[in-house]
Amino acid sequence: MKRILGSTVLSLVISALIIATVFAQDSIPSDDEVNAIAKNLFCPVCPNTPLDMCPTLACKAWREDIRNMLAEGKSEAQIRQSFMDYYGPRVLSEPPRTGFYWLTYAVPPIIIAAAAFMLFRALKTWKRSSLMEADLDEDDALTSDDEYITRMEEELKKRN
């Protein structure tokens, strides 16, 4: 009886280990899952190279780090934060939206808006001055017409 119980327990333990191993193997994140995160991180040492494309051994090791973190259940945000904490903000594909780095996002729209404002003001000024010119032309025309008519009437009166 003891032997039967012992072998049953042993079988159960071995089965559990096999199942655990299989599940562990299934939970290894795929290359695509790793690359989806590595794509938005830049190699901390190679210039301007996304981590998913970098051929160096160091980057290969960092991709494995991502795989391990994914296997541990970490989210993309946590992995990105972990890389940033360790290697600094240059590993992110764009600067973080904090403090000084806000300038990255704020400066271009301010300059473009200022340029657009200046352009519209210039256009309005040009338009107004061309309208004024047209008005002046009309006034000149009226004045000269008036003078002409006045003189013509005077001449006619003289002849009459």
Partner: peptide, 17 residues
């Protein structure tokens, strides 16, 4: 370069920006 000059921290401005 501006970032490195003022904060000493190099950053990446990549395709998403």
């Amino acid at each position: 370069l501006v970032s490195e000059l003022f904060t000493g921290q190099k950053i990446t401005v990549g395709p998403p920006f």
